[in-house]
Amino acid sequence: MTTLTLSQVTRDFDATRALDSVGFNVAAGERVALLGHNGAGKSTLMKIILGLIPATSGSVTVCGAAPGSSEARRQVAYLPENVAFHPALTGLEMLRFYLRLRGENPAVAMDLLARVGLAHAARRRIGTYSKGMRQRVGLAQALIGKPRLLVLDEPTSGLDPVSRREFYAMLDGLAAQGAAILLSSHALTEVEARTDRIVILSKGRMVANDTLGALRRAAALPTRLQVTARPGAADQVAVALAAGRRNGVMVDLTCAQDQKLARLGQIAGLGDLVADVEVIPPSLEDLYSHFSARAGNETCKEAQP
């Protein structure tokens, strides 16, 4: 079942086109990562989904309703980039306020803060919080009620690695209960393992929308093989494999996906000269650069007569 449907969404700010015919869906229980450079249109797209700003053209359906309608707002949770709260209120007071706005019992505020690891600071003013702590208050308010769609703008910025892991575990739980999740992030490595699908925006246009595996196949980027030679044998290994030497013992080579096994066979054939071998598939960073750059080139080509 589709929770969020975007079709041909375009948004102009004066003469600039911030979004150009963006269309994708997010199903219930699906975690979708929205990637793109600064200014690619991620936050604009999120604000349109939330109904904070209207699209210039195109259609958006959120939980079967129009974005920003009270029907949609009841079922959508949002975590803005650099979330801010009134500094004079405590974390507990702030959450009670948000719970009341959603018509929920304010007494669960403490439980929510405990879930994001803020119980110890609940009665302190938010003005004294660190960025990471404010981010946790933001997460706690996004967990209120049972949102069917979570829109999270850079949710893990300001969180330490352990908190990030806890945060993604929390998202897994929400997705398992059927919530659709759309999140943007700059930390590609963490998104890689914790989302079902990846949407890449580049200069307002959607340049990729698929699972990580499918994007890897489509991009057909070379795989890296990192060979560790026995001490003193690095030169010999490099010559045998016709590859460059990185340092005293390592030899780096790249090969296309379909030549990988043949290359590995060659390496195995060197016997005692090789101590170890690592196979490094193209990372999300590589894929991201590939798709973003390709979109950039296309734009350049189009611009030429």
Binding site: N82, V83, P87, R102
Partner: peptide, 13 residues
């Protein structure tokens, strides 16, 4: 100025 408005406006209020 504080940036607290976008979040509260996504609430059903």
């Amino acid at each position: 100025e504080r940036g607290t408005l976008p979040l509260v406006l996504t609430y059903p209020v």
